[in-house]
Design a binder for these strands. Structure first.
Length: 532
RNA sequence: GUCCCCAUCGUCUAACGGUUAGGACACCACCCUUUCAAGGUGGAAAUACGGGUUCGAUUCCCGUUGGGGAUGCCA
């Protein structure tokens, strides 16, 4: 492995979205390539016409790009070893099959799927191996030729050695793996419809694309010996292998949609930052050292090594991902945060002073459901709104940079997902009054005497001689609580509900500054009407 | 059924024969505090079980148990 250039590949089959497991495989391949100044090849394994869809290919490419995983060869970038869609490599597979035929390394099998199913069942009940019993391998060559000429449906199977042999290879993660050819059967290389199977194309393409290291899911560990035999038959040198153990759900079983989102896109829509997902995924089966948790892509590519990949299957923990995302949101800085938040503001048509109490109410009430679903009405927030609104919001952010930048620290450490931000800040965007949370009103406004508190506060805050700044507001209101002989907490919570609509909110004085004098006074009056 | 692989706190993991078994998420307590967060301090929490090998095993070997994968004209 020393002097050969590192060439690795990520080879998804476009049968669905890019999910967490696939993303991790892609990430490790990418990190390994970058760590060794090698190349990452992206190859689309669309050999199964039944299940492959072009739309899925596009989604996978999008998700990889979003994560920041660039490839050196593959769809949309080209390369010297293409084409990179297996569906466009049929000639190559045909040619390779031809070679195998000439060497008599393969034979046609005329068993139908139905017959195979029966044979399998019989073998199982008789406690024999379920693999193919090689009956078509006995067919005399002349007879086989005649049946082929007659157009009889057939598959092509690889001839495995009749004398038992032990196959072994050294996996970079699992170490030496050995298996006897007795455990294998003459597997199918080409289906009866002429399309090649996975084991065949994976081997051919990895060889032809000069792949040096195959880093892939653990579910292929048992396939590797078969592929070794194929490399041998085709006269290719096999690559090195590194198998990644599976990612499991919280129930210890294979990760599935049942336990929440598994698609990379879902986390994107929820407002997980690509850097956070990358960091989390990197740690799911690999460690930098004995203590480092937060690191960026550059650090990863600098330190990534196959030797530190864990053999244990890892349970995917969304909680830790959310924690990590919050850590990244806090580090983002105002400008980057706003850029990331903008699509969400856009989705709800939220910009400063352009939200009615009714709209705010809807946003707040949908919050939990949206976050749970990971979607905004089932659509990505990124493409939802008309350009005019987008322009308005861009313009607003530009015109009120200071205001938006002041919102950033208030919200960034209170959310784990960008999708949570709108509901938590809607009160800041309201033009006039805000919707009131019933429980908060009950607890903080209803108690007798609150009406008087709010009236006193309104009176205190009305004169324009009072500077509308954090320090002066706090000083004045603290003094008011002393004058009225109420605990600061009592006064502040009443004000909070009056101004924010909820007894849980970002800090009060910062909020007052952002809301401004006139809307604040209006909200105090509205709350006064509800207060006891 | 057969074969292959795996096994450290609830979870992700560190340790590559000698450590009070370390870190992180989550959890609990306290501090800070106008709520919620964030932050700080502290706490509880693990080597699946049974045999070996060794002066000494989380670490090496065997078995048991548990889990995963393969055994497809899926990948």
């Amino acid at each position: 492995m020393s002097d050969q250039p590192v060439r690795v590949r990520f080879a998804p089959s476009p049968t669905g979205n890019l999910h967490i497991g696939g993303a991790r495989t892609a990430l490790y391949n990418w990190a390994f390539a970058r760590a060794h100044a090698g190349s990452l090849i992206l190859r689309i394994e669309d050999t199964d016409p039944e299940r492959s869809q072009a739309a899925h290919t596009q989604q996978i490419l999008d998700a990889l790009r979003w994560l920041g995983l660039n490839w050196d060869e593959g769809p949309e970038v080209g390369g010297d070893f293409g084409p990179y869609m297996q569906s466009q490599r049929q000639d190559i597979y045909r040619r390779e099959l031809e070679r195998l035929k000439q060497q008599e390394a393969v034979y046609p099998c005329f068993c139908t799927p139905e017959q195979r199913e029966m044979q399998r069942r019989e073998a199982l009940t008789a406690h024999r191996p379920a693999g193919y019993d090689r009956r078509c391998r006995q067919i005399p060559a002349q007879q086989a030729r005649e049946r082929l000429a007659g157009g009889e449906a057939h598959t092509w199977r690889l001839k495995l050695p009749l004398m038992p042999r032990t196959l072994s290879f050294e996996d970079a993660v699992f170490g030496v793996v050995e298996v006897s050819t007795e455990q294998l059967d003459d597997f199918i290389l080409v289906r009866s419809d002429g399309s090649p199977t996975y084991n065949f194309v994976a081997c051919v393409d990895d060889a032809l694309m000069r792949i040096s290291h195959v880093i892939r899911g653990d579910d292929h560990l048992s396939n590797t010996p078969k592929q070794l035999l194929l490399y041998e038959a085709l006269g290719y040198t096999p690559p090195r292998f590194a198998h990644l153990s599976m990612i499991l759900g919280s129930d210890g079983r294979r990760l599935s949609k049942r336990q929440g989102a598994t698609a990379v896109q879902s986390y994107r829509h929820l407002g997980v930052l690509p850097a956070a997902l990358l960091n989390y995924l990197a740690l799911l089966g690999w460690s930098l050292d004995d203590h480092t948790t937060l690191f960026d892509a550059a650090t990863l590519t600098q330190h990534f090594s196959l030797a530190r990949i864990s053999k244990n299957p890892a349970v995917f923990d969304p909680q830790k991902l959310l924690w990590m995302n919050q850590a990244y949101l806090k580090k983002l800085g105002a400008a980057d945060f706003l850029a990331a938040w903008q699509p969400y503001l856009l989705f709800d048509g939220m910009w400063r002073g352009h939200l009615s109490a009714k709209q705010a109410q809807i946003i707040i009430s949908q919050d939990a459901e949206r976050v749970q679903k990971g979607l905004f009405d089932g659509r990505p927030p990124l493409t939802a709104s008309p350009t005019t609104i987008q322009d308005a919001i861009c313009a607003d952010i530009e015109a009120h940079t200071h205001w938006y930048h002041a919102v950033y620290p208030l919200i960034s450490e209170r959310i784990q997902l960008l999708a949570e931000a709108n509901a938590k800040t809607a009160y800041l965007f309201c033009a006039g009054t805000v919707p009131f949370d019933e429980a908060s009103v009950e607890k903080c406004l209803r108690p007798v005497g609150t009406k008087a508190l709010l009236a006193a506060a309104e009176q205190l805050l009305t004169p324009t001689s009072l500077s509308w700044q954090h320090a002066s507001l706090e000083e004045a209101l603290r003094a008011l609580s002393t004058t009225l002989d109420v605990k600061p907490r009592r006064l502040f919570q009443a004000l909070r509900v009056a101004v924010c609509g909820n007894m849980v909110s970002p800090p009060l004085f910062e909020s007052l500054v952002l809301i401004g004098r006139s809307p604040t006074l209006e909200r105090l009056r509205a709350a006064g009407d509800l207060a006891g």
